[in-house]
């Protein structure tokens, strides 16, 4: 795999076996940020189109639109990717600019908790609309 080969000359055999690097969690943060970014390119454009298609919609037709299976699935995918990507991005900003360690940790934990809560709340809201309760 080209991706795995790229950095191989730069690391010691032990570092390569551990696969972690200076960030202590390897390339996973970087990789998931790109993965969610790629997903959000498609899902974001879909979201804008959906919102524009609902400009004239009253409550019942907006609900009916979201309740359609594809829209419900894509909306849950969009909000999950959105909160995940936002959390990863905010993590980097906090790590860069918050220099008091306990504040940094507290903010990182807070952002993670809020992101998970947000994603769960959105998923539940979509399910309630889709399942009609």
């Amino acid at each position: 795999m080209k991706y795995a080969r790229m950095g191989s000359e730069m690391r010691t055999p032990l570092a390569r076996a551990r696969g972690l690097g200076s960030a202590k969690d390897g390339a996973s943060h970087w990789w998931v940020q790109r993965l969610t970014a790629a997903a959000l390119v498609v899902l974001g454009l879909w979201f804008v189109c959906l919102v524009l298609s609902l400009l004239h919609a009253d409550y019942a037709s907006a609900r009916a639109a979201l309740a359609r299976p594809w829209n419900a699935v894509l909306m849950i995918a969009f909000t999950a990717a959105m909160f995940w990507h936002a959390q990863l991005g905010l993590q980097v900003v906090i790590e860069d600019y918050v220099h008091t360690r306990w504040r940094e940790i507290a903010l990182l934990v807070l952002v993670k908790f809020l992101a998970v809560l947000g994603a769960l709340a959105c998923a539940l809201a979509v399910l309630r609309v889709a399942l009609g309760s």
Partner: peptide, 27 residues
């Protein structure tokens, strides 16, 4: 814009919750 959009996620969540909650919240 990334930081701004992170706050914007709240608007998306609010819209979905309002849609699920009922007509009055949606209005």
């Amino acid at each position: 814009t990334g930081v701004a959009l992170s706050f914007g996620t709240l608007l998306v969540a609010a819209a979905l919750l309002a849609l699920a909650a009922g007509e009055a919240d949606f209005a």
